[in-house]
């Protein structure tokens, strides 16, 4: 199994790996955005709790 030949995809490498690459990139970005959103929500919750803690 010659990897170089495999990745060349008989000249269509750009198109094949271009579409799969962008798809995986898009999925990775989506996952990262969701984790970020969760972290942000938790940080806000803790800030609110700390403020409430001081004011009570």
């Amino acid at each position: 199994m010659n990897w170089a030949e495999f990745f060349a995809m008989k000249g269509y490498a750009f198109y094949v790996w271009g579409s799969y690459g962008v798809a995986l990139l898009v999925f990775a970005i989506e996952i990262m955005l969701i984790r970020n959103r969760r972290k942000q929500a938790l940080r806000n919750l803790r800030l609110m709790r700390d403020e409430m803690g001081e004011s009570v």
């Binding site: 996952i31 806000n44 609110m48």
Partner: peptide, 20 residues
């Protein structure tokens, strides 16, 4: 993948909306 991502995002939304 779509189900997992949707569940993860809905948890984030719940945290935001039910913050108080």
């Amino acid at each position: 993948y779509a189900i997992a991502v949707a569940l993860a995002r809905v948890r984030g939304i719940i945290l935001e909306r039910e913050a108080n």
